[in-house]
Write a protein that binds this DNA or RNA. Structure first.
Length: 275
DNA sequence: TATCAGGCCCTAG
DNA sequence: CTAGGGCCTGAT
């Protein structure tokens, strides 16, 4: 176990951003993050964040996972200063990063996310991890569970994940697992595709529509051109971009802007309306 | 009791 | 191609 200090990084901003459903606040200023089969704890003090994780795992995994090498200032500086809304949203969400998460984990997570709320999504994912994921032990000696592999879910009945509270999404997840295990869909190949092609491939999964495909492109494949439009984003676009979002200007970084808008709508804009 | 939530699928017109 | 019903479950 080692401690690693990261300056100018706010985990709390990412925790509420809806990218990762296995990150949670466990104390006043402490967080737990699960990714794949890994476990991290972190303490946030102002703009300084201290990671606790096994030695070497930081450089080998978490640094990339949180996209720490990237300077997000370049995205913020791209923003049109006359666009007051986006400027405010980005200021509010300053510190957000687009995580580089596992492809299989994102496919399952966003299949589960549809027509669903965050609290229940987290519970569903916790359930399938506990039931079908490998048991592990963290550096404190406490148990946790890895994310279930396609192989572990493929043998299930289509309805079996209803026991984990997935509801009608159960068959989406089971069929996705089968498609991967059978070789019908190739995750490694998808990782190498450009945005449009990857999106097309993902749409072939039963239960993956455009919104879910774009979430997967953004949060697993780091395709920053992906711009997931859900009901929140749609409302924000209608309210602030009646002539359409300036796609031209933000080509190649629309996903980052999407996250600023999403997070601002979820947590920031409300506070403003109260004033 | 009815509605709908961070959709998607399928069928009818 | 577009509209609309159905789908699990839980919160309001």
């Amino acid at each position: 176990m080692t401690e690693k200090i990261i300056e100018n990084f706010k985990l709390s901003q990412i925790c509420g951003s809806g990218q990762c459903f296995r990150m949670e606040r466990i104390g006043e200023d402490t967080f737990r993050v699960l990714a794949g089969d890994r476990y991290l704890e972190a303490r946030q003090q102002g703009m300084r964040c201290t990671f606790s994780c096994p030695e070497e795992e930081f450089a080998k995994f978490w640094q990339n996972y949180f996209d720490l090498e990237e300077d997000y200032g370049k995205y913020i500086r791209q923003i049109n200063p006359r666009d007051g809304y986006l400027t405010r949203a980005a200021a509010f969400g300053d510190g957000i990063r687009i995580l580089r998460q596992d492809l299989w984990e994102m496919i399952v997570s966003f299949l589960i996310s549809q027509q669903n709320n965050i609290v229940r999504i987290r519970r569903c994912i916790g359930n399938i991890c506990e039931k079908y994921g490998e048991p592990r032990v963290n550096f404190r000696g406490e148990p946790y569970w890895a994310f279930p592999t396609p192989e572990s879910l493929a043998p299930l009945e289509e309805d079996e994940l209803k026991d984990c509270n997935l509801g009608y999404r159960s068959k989406y997840v089971v069929r996705a697992a089968r498609a991967v295990v059978s070789g019908e869909r190739d995750l490694e190949q998808i990782k190498g595709l450009p945005y449009r092609k990857a999106r097309e491939e993902l749409l072939q999964f039963f239960g993956v529509g455009e919104k879910v495909a774009d979430c997967i492109c953004l949060f697993a494949l780091h395709q920053l051109e992906a711009f997931p439009v859900d009901t929140h984003i749609r409302q924000a676009l209608e309210a602030h971009y009646k002539r359409g979002f300036p796609n031209r200007r933000y080509r190649g970084s629309r996903g980052v802007m999407q996250q600023y808008i999403f997070y601002y709508e979820l947590l920031g804009a409300k506070e403003e309306r109260i004033e």
